[in-house]
Write a protein that binds this DNA or RNA. Structure first.
Lengths: 294, 294
DNA sequence: ACGAGCCATGCCTGACACGCATGGCTGGGA
DNA sequence: TCCCAGCCATGCGTGTCAGGCATGGCTCGT
């Protein structure tokens, strides 16, 4: 069976005439006649009764006609769906990122990316690494920027992880703090300081770094989010570690000091394996790598 | 679009490899590769992402795949239908019906039908709804007249159900019964009567109707078939409910009384979907609708 | 660095699809 | 009864096509 022949058969039944159908479809009468003959050979018997003035379907022809109509309709629908999938697909890219990447890295990546995929709208969501990766895997996000910040970077099936950069942590203190304007600072000089952390789990890097310097940090303020965290530091309630990526975004009444032998965290882009080689997510990952390198 | 290419595309997606699909379909790898290229040209863009070890459908390819599967299944079904139409005895229509429809509705439908399809011989079979529908689905009957009589009208794939009429139930009593010649009768007046039913399952409408009237019917006679049932009623052993369709066929020593707020059952014609739009079964269904309307 | 596996493509060839021309059949009108 | 118009089937010829063979390029695993 052949779609061209089914189409001709359908039109012949509709018009009741091979000649009329040929004209309607842009064939000669003999071409359509032969198409029908081929179809009848394939289906082992006549589908039409030929008369002096036109044709009429046999019982087998009537049986076929119902299917032919359905098949042709479905073929047309398939073409429409495919066209719609093409115009739909390049519309949207959903990116999730840890907050520290949103502030600086992502805008630079978006600038580079927009030139390569002008038709694609990118949306961003903030989150922590342990929450972003499952949303990527479940299809709710198309690409995520995550870190190996404790508890670390889990390995997920079907997810491709690309290293973007190593990010040094810095010390943030109030403008009036005794260490403001100095540096590089040894962590050991901070043994008696009060620390501000956003949640107890995130303090693991701090704890291990201070451990290496010979002391346990005294976390006096636990608060949610960088806004709150930096507000307490600015007010003099304590000090905190800040990733290099965040340094350009720090408020004016806070001073950043470099640390001697600072803790380092790695930053990654993660996307689904099957989208890792081509498509909008892959191109955005390339733009991120470019932005990270600069 | 071309069925050969759709078939190849489908198999390539199934196997994840052009080479494997070519082998399965009896082509060389290059032939299938070119078929896919032609399909992608026709649909104006890639349908597959090519990798070093196999291929994967794009979003457009996934959209097409669903349709391709459906189209190919329908093509196969069409060939089967055409073959079946050839082997089916020409000029034969096998109708099944619940007994109450055979008595009156079917003869009137046959009269109208015979004029439109003179060459077709119709045969009839009696049965209950739960047995008629499977025989229709299995191809042993071409059309059935059924009701939503308990346990109701099941939904079967591939079966088209057409509503014919709503049929009120009536009370049948012996000529000597105290209620003979009266009406309309309240069901509540029958709380102390003995009831005749043809089988326990069919009593569901009776039971629910009497339940609404505040009593449980006392079924004293269970017998098979309307002949036996009406015989016991005529003999004074009890009363029973009779469909409106059967009223003209009731024996003379039984009196029919109308019920106030009678139970109602719906009567339907059922035929296979693929025969619902044209052919003898469709035309008989039209004749049934005409007969039901009168 | 090398080889296996897979896909794309150039080249070639036999098969195919279609137009043109023509013959045969049927039915309606004169 | 005859003739003609309308329609379908088929022979012939030709340009196009579908698929096999061979080969090159790329990627990934060892």
């Amino acid at each position: 069976m052949d779609l061209t022949a089914l189409r001709s058969f359908h039109e012949v039944c509709r018009q009741g005439s091979i000649s009329a159908a040929a004209q309607a479809l842009g064939y000669t009468q003999s071409a359509v006649s032969r198409q029908l003959a081929t179809l009848e050979t394939a289906l082992r018997g006549p589908l039409l009764r030929r008369h002096a003035r036109g044709v009429q379907p046999t019982a087998a022809g009537e049986a076929l006609l119902v299917h032919a109509a359905a098949i042709l309709a479905r073929v047309e629908q398939a073409a429409e769906e495919v066209a719609a999938a093409r115009t739909r697909q390049p519309g949207r890219l959903r990116v999730g990122a840890v907050p520290t990447a949103v502030g600086h890295l992502l805008p630079r990546a978006l600038t580079a990316y927009a030139a390569t995929d002008p038709g694609i709208r990118v949306s961003f969501a903030e989150g922590v690494t342990p929450r972003l990766l499952p949303r990527l895997r479940d299809g709710k996000l198309d690409l995520v920027v995550v870190t190996d910040y404790p508890p670390g970077l889990p390995v997920l099936d079907g997810v491709r992880v690309l290293h973007l950069l190593d990010d040094r942590l810095h010390l943030a203190v109030a403008r009036t703090h005794r260490l403001a304007g100095t540096g590089p600072v040894d962590l050991a000089e901070l043994a008696d300081e009060a620390w501000v952390e956003d949640y107890a789990g995130a303090a693991a890097i701090l704890t291990s770094a201070c451990g290496r310097a010979g002391f346990t940090p005294r976390v006096e303020i636990e608060t949610g989010g960088w806004m709150g965290k930096l507000a307490f530091v600015a007010a003099g309630f304590g000090v905190c570690l800040v990733p290099g990526l965040l340094v350009p975004a720090v408020r004016v009444d806070i001073t950043i000091c470099e640390l001697r032998d600072p803790p380092v965290r790695a930053v990654y882009a993660a996307l689904r394996d099957r989208e890792a080689d081509s498509g909008p997510a892959a191109r955005f990952a390339a733009a991120l790598a470019e932005a990270a390198f600069a």
